[in-house]
Design a protein around this nucleic acid. Structure first.
Lengths: 234, 234
DNA sequence: GTCCATTTGTCCGTATGTATG
DNA sequence: CCATACATACGGACAAATGGA
């Protein structure tokens, strides 16, 4: 509930002040900001300390340092700050349920678009993934199918988003190395159903099949989380 | 087209190597990594240089330094790296069309959920936002409506995502300070229609109305971008 | 082009506070 | 309490790059 109340180290303090100043448009984007020595004097710290702060800001693309010239505020510094904030808050403060819901929405829509937009060749490739699936299905094949499906949906932005969403769901839930083979058999059938719907160019059907497929696997996940206990309560 | 070909500075070099090493599971998450002096020897650089790198990694939450103890690889360092990469690539490499498509999907679904999940009180609040809309509508009111709608949909994760999505769409398009009032009148009607659908607890209707609303405004955006020329070609 | 002042890049040495055993 | 190990912080020094006179 409470913040760690970390006794800010010097460079943390300086860093926060710098970020705040940038947020408040202390300097114009693209403009040169005071030299390291100058900043060191202003904050009454050593140049080394300032450098650590500047290098941190550089990593996140907020500033750009040019040797022999100076350090410049990045053209889209504010956007990069916003994005960093997003990364920090996005997943940390999200519940498993929210993420699962989001994944369902995205993956359903991607199946929908795939049915609309896939070329004949892409559909053949999708089928081949299922055909070449080994007798004992595994998780890698599972993801392979989902990934290729998302790819042919033709929205790379959502594909990337979905990808990290899946990673995040995996991170938050209790991970199980192996699904029971009975489950994987069911999933295989689901995949075929989705693939069939895409082949028939039936977007709604594909979307519905995908959502049902996800519901099946996600119920299993939530069920297990309940059984094995939530270890993340602390 | 070409990369800046920056002759990597030392700390850049070290930083990249460190990140690569972390990605390749050189160290266990949560484990203590070698001391600064040790790293300095390994990379054959000064301790100062190492510190700049470590502070940069610390800002992004990849690493945690504890004074008098050591520097530890963050428990979810890999997730943070992945998320940072994601956000960096997410928006940079996405076309305006992809972002608009994604926004449409998200905002439509949020309207859908809002119709399902809103409490009576929340619906009243939503109506009040529209009622209190001034005679000459402005953009702030517009966003106020959309934000509250997303809020009562009850998925904070998607709300946050949508928020930065909108920011990004604004950044990529040619921004216009003021919509023509004729447009804003149309939008106002759209909002009422959406609100009505939510009041009727008609999810599909709300979703459809929202999508139509966005199509209207987005066509306008794309149209203007075409007319005024794409300045981002450089 | 050359020189020169400025600024970042890089290193070293040293002192201090803090955690661990 | 002590010794050790480590991060924190400072100041000085020189190299390398840059931009302007």
């Amino acid at each position: 509930m409470f913040k760690p109340a970390n006794k800010a180290t010097l460079h943390q303090n300086v860093l926060n002040q710098m970020i705040t100043a940038i947020k408040e448009n202390e300097w114009e984007p693209g403009s040169k900001l005071p030299g390291e020595q100058s900043l060191a004097n202003a904050f009454e710290v050593s140049r080394n300390c300032i450098r650590e702060v500047l290098k941190a800001l550089e990593l996140t693309g907020i500033v750009e340092a040019r040797a022999g010239d100076g350090t410049y505020l990045s053209e889209n510094a504010l956007r990069n700050i916003a994005n960093s904030d997003l990364v920090a808050s996005l997943f940390e403060e999200s519940t498993l349920m929210e993420l699962i819901e989001a994944r369902q929405l995205l993956e359903g829509q991607l199946a929908y678009w795939a049915a609309q937009r896939a070329s004949d060749e892409e559909i053949m490739n999708l089928e081949r993934i299922l055909v070449e699936e080994p007798e004992t299905p595994n998780v890698e094949v599972h993801y392979h199918f989902h990934n290729y499906l998302a790819e042919i949906a033709g929205n790379p932005f959502l594909l990337r988003l979905l990808d990290s969403l899946r990673t995040e769901v995996s991170a938050q839930r209790i991970v199980f190395k192996s699904w029971p083979s009975t489950e994987l058999e069911l999933f295989k059938k689901d995949h075929w159903e989705i693939c069939q719907a895409i082949k028939e160019r039936a977007p709604e059907k594909a979307q519905e099949a995908m959502i049902q497929h996800l519901l099946r696997s996600q119920n299993e996940i939530l069920e297990r989380n309940r059984r094995e206990g939530r270890r993340k309560e602390a």
